[in-house]
Nucleic acid binder design. Sequence first.
DNA 1: TCTGAATCTTTCCACTGGAAAGACTAGGGC
DNA 2: GCCCTAGTCTTTCCAGTGGAAAGATTCAGA
Lengths: 191, 191
Amino acid sequence: MHYHHGDLRRAMLEAAATAIAADGVDRLSIRGLARATEVSHTAFRHHFGDRRGLLTALAAQGYAGMTQALRAVDRTGPEGFLETGVAYIEWALAHPAHFQVMFRPDLVDEADPALQTALGELAGALMLGVADFSGRPSEGAPRTNPLALAAWSLTHGFATLALAGNLPSGETGQSLPDLARAVLRNLAQPH
Amino acid sequence: MHYHHGDLRRAMLEAAATAIAADGVDRLSIRGLARATEVSHTAFRHHFGDRRGLLTALAAQGYAGMTQALRAVDRTGPEGFLETGVAYIEWALAHPAHFQVMFRPDLVDEADPALQTALGELAGALMLGVADFSGRPSEGAPRTNPLALAAWSLTHGFATLALAGNLPSGETGQSLPDLARAVLRNLAQPH
DNA sequence: TCTGAATCTTTCCACTGGAAAGACTAGGGC
DNA sequence: GCCCTAGTCTTTCCAGTGGAAAGATTCAGA
């Protein structure tokens, strides 16, 4: 039996994302992950501590990934103010496992410093999009500015409903990103 | 030891709602519920089949409760079009356990007929609010009409973020329902 | 009172996450 | 070359979980 997997941490996170995307977080089995990566079911403890630690790491990875995606958005077009929202939704749909964990504080160790800084950066990237939308640098954190909160709620709600299977996926001929665009246009623009 | 609890079904649902509100769905233990209701851990199977059946019943109960709350809304005031959204959010905050289960199809048996009819009635009640908002009877189900979907996404997103602890609760002096009202006003009204 | 249906218990099983202690391995200092 | 420490992984154990199967108890109606 091999000692030293080589990159167990990365392998476990990948396996976890795949498993969660397939079966949901609550059916995630540490022992199952261990089997998938051909390692004993306690090997992961050295890297993550416990189950919660693993999910925390996954959430942090998710925050970082989404931040990167939002920063890469081209916001210069005529409807550029929509694109951050669209990117948020597209990223969520493309990374359902991460997204599921990112917004479930009950699953995660919120005190984790790596998690907190990653979350902070995501909040910053979100505010870029809100600033486009309101036409001026927005004041305060997204959670206290009503317009920012409306934009975030709308985007987040759409992504959540879509991931939970409450939205039509293509049956209307309209792709989900297109639908998202149409929905986001219903936010009132201040001027 | 008593045979026949009397109203095990109701008692189990209540205990489940309390436990979920306190610790989240995934930490819900059937055996724990059984202890709380002073019954063997398999007693519930006669009423619900399995764990999933219990959660399905809870979701159906939630759909019905929310439907009732939405129907009781006074929508005649100057901003009556907002009140359905506010009621949605208030109900979600008051019944976190039900709300958690209602929109997680992975936890539930979607084929359950009782669940489906309860969900249908909720959709109807939701459309009442959307009709107020758009000023005319809305066409189609909420999930295909972009404006309806925007209103639902915004409302649902707000409730979700609030329940997950991502929103300030009173630290700004503003109560969550008031904040919800301010946020909902940012939906563009067509006319 | 008898009987069938409903309700609950007992017992068992495979599985889960975590604790504890020990085995292996790599790499830096001598 | 060797040793020794830190890092990584395994083995073994334990309490707890949800579900299956079979049997006991209670209830309602003929």
